[in-house]
């Protein structure tokens, strides 16, 4: 379904997939997942919640750590990946497909110019 090379990435290791002119799907990269280790719980916002670019909107937990996830775009949460509640391991197994986090409907014109493409992101993570 999703090919990593079509995605855009943030420096905070979120990925963004453009679903339509005004909506995106957001997840976290395989690099981020590897850093986090075995993910045991994902806390997502409620549907219809308003999120603002750069702010925390989800929490991902391993056995002994919690990490905040920041949204790369502003808008309204239109859909959440409810299956993560019972199967958080999907994030480890399939970060770009079954492990997606939320869909966001953006309020203003979609501006993804701050994000990196897959190649640039690869170079970025190699440099870390």
């Amino acid at each position: 379904m999703t090919d990593k090379k079509d995605l855009l990435f943030s420096k905070d290791h979120e990925w963004v997939e453009r679903l339509s002119d005004n909506s995106v799907r957001v997840g976290i990269s395989d690099y981020a997942v590897e850093q986090l280790g075995d993910i045991v719980f994902v806390e997502l916002p409620e549907v219809d919640a308003t999120v603002e670019a750069g702010s925390e909107f989800a929490t991902v937990e391993s056995v002994k750590s919690t990490s905040e996830i920041y949204t790369p775009v502003s808008g309204t949460v239109s859909n959440i990946n409810e299956s993560l509640e019972d199967e958080p391991e999907k994030l480890n197994e399939s970060p770009y497909e079954e492990g997606w986090l939320v869909d966001i409907t953006v309020s203003e014109e979609l501006d993804l110019s701050d994000l990196m493409d897959a190649k640039a992101y690869q170079e970025y993570t190699d440099s870390l």
């Binding site: 075995d38 045991v40 719980f41 937990e61 056995v63 958080p88 391991e89």
Partner: peptide
């Protein structure tokens, strides 16, 4: 032996 804390939390 070593216990599976990941499944315990998941």
């Amino acid at each position: 032996k070593r216990l599976d804390e990941v499944t315990a939390a998941r």
